[in-house]
Computed example of a mutant assay.
Amino acid sequence: MSAPDWRFDASRPAPARRYDALLGGKDNLAPDRDSAEQIREQLPSVGKAAAELRWFLQRVVHFLADDCGVRQFIDIGCGMPFTPSVHEIVQTVSPDSVVVYVDPDEMVAVHSRAMLVSHPDGAIRFVEGGLDDIDTVLSDPQVRGLIDFTQPVAVLLLAVLHFVDDDQHAAHALNRIIQALPAGSYLAVSHVTFDPLPADQARRLSKLAEPGSGHGPFRARSHAQISALLDGLDLMPPGLVSAVDWYPHRHPQPQIKAEEAVAYGVVARIPATTGPGADGAPA
């Protein structure tokens, strides 16, 4: 299956702009708002769910920077800039932290390069790309010039894997990332699921992702399907759980229940047997 093309197209919705629309932002176009409204008709909590994914990101990033001591981050599928951004969170913990933002959307690139400003002791970069060209991203000179792949790295795949509807494509991208990271690195994932929903509601939502529906590729996955993609990684407690059940007492605290959030979240650690060179793969 060919990878989705997320180059700028004002005539169709794009994930980053639609997410912005769901959050009530202004960096979106009419097709993004129309798509968001059609989703909202089938899932009235989708706006709250989008906000919860952002709050999950904040809890995860602070956990990785503060509790795990990570100082290097790669945020793949970063979406439109927001506050607090990943670098603002991690550089509050340690000002010398570095962050690479990655997204295939040209509108995201324009906004990110104009708006994102690093702490002077740290550094940030923006690279155009995504999971469909992950080898190019990982070998990009800007990435290699900023990220030290001999030291732990945290890769963020937050609200991005569900836009890869082919399981083999998703697994390949994950494997390439894992092979490039040194042992002791981390992978953070959030992923939409229809597990908590009634079957008829899940079917209606799935129809919105069918080819020709006009919403673009999308694949909600079950707990078992997401677990299969993470096979071989060490899942940090509490494991793969609803995004609202991942350290819910940390700030910002969740405001809705799992059946409204419709997303799983997890932080996984790269064990010593899967880092660069473990299977003869290049770093």
Score class of each variant (00 low, 15 high):
184 G>Y: 03
210 E>N: 04
212 G>A: 14
170 A>H: 11
211 P>C: 01
169 H>C: 09
185 S>R: 11
204 R>S: 14
221 R>F: 15
200 D>G: 00
214 G>R: 11
188 A>M: 02
190 S>G: 01
194 F>S: 05
205 L>Y: 06
169 H>Y: 13
216 G>P: 12
208 L>Q: 08
226 I>V: 15
166 D>S: 07
201 Q>H: 02
198 P>Y: 05
170 A>S: 13
194 F>N: 10
181 L>Y: 03
190 S>F: 00
168 Q>N: 14
179 Q>Y: 13
178 I>S: 09
172 H>S: 03
186 Y>T: 06
186 Y>D: 03
175 N>L: 01
180 A>S: 15
192 V>P: 03
223 H>I: 02
178 I>K: 11
217 P>F: 03
218 F>P: 01
180 A>R: 15
226 I>F: 05
182 P>Q: 08
231 D>L: 11
180 A>H: 12
226 I>A: 06
231 D>C: 11
202 A>T: 02
223 H>P: 01
187 L>D: 08
215 H>T: 08
213 S>C: 04
174 L>S: 11
194 F>M: 09
203 R>N: 03
227 S>F: 02
191 H>W: 04
205 L>F: 04
213 S>M: 08
205 L>C: 02
193 T>R: 07
168 Q>G: 13
176 R>Y: 05
184 G>C: 09
186 Y>W: 14
224 A>R: 11
186 Y>K: 09
203 R>L: 00
189 V>F: 11
229 L>T: 12
169 H>P: 01
230 L>P: 03
197 L>H: 04
188 A>K: 01
212 G>Q: 15
